[in-house]
């Protein structure tokens, strides 16, 4: 299990797989255990049990 945006979910193992499941191609920032993971590492980076991920994007703002 891992924590995604504060919620517990089964471990998706890879960031690219998680984003695929969320139907996200790009336009987000992925933060793994507090560190920003650049897009070119989404495919390679493995997610371990207990990891914390945040998926962050843009919304309207001044």
């Amino acid at each position: 299990m891992i924590v995604l945006n504060d919620k517990k979910i089964p471990n998706p193992k890879k960031i690219s797989l998680l984003l695929k499941k969320m139907e996200i191609k790009d336009g987000v920032c992925v933060i793994l255990n507090g560190k920003i993971i650049k897009k070119d590492r989404w495919e390679k980076t493995e997610i371990k049990d207990g990891d914390k991920i945040e998926i962050v994007g843009f919304v309207g703002g001044g």
Binding site: N5, G27, V56, G57, F58, V59
Partner: peptide, 18 residues
């Protein structure tokens, strides 16, 4: 254009501004 930053939730009903 300015935009703000916020978490994106998997089952969100919110449109993506991008």
């Amino acid at each position: 254009l300015t935009v703000a930053v916020r978490r994106i939730n998997p089952d969100s009903k919110v449109e993506n501004i991008l």
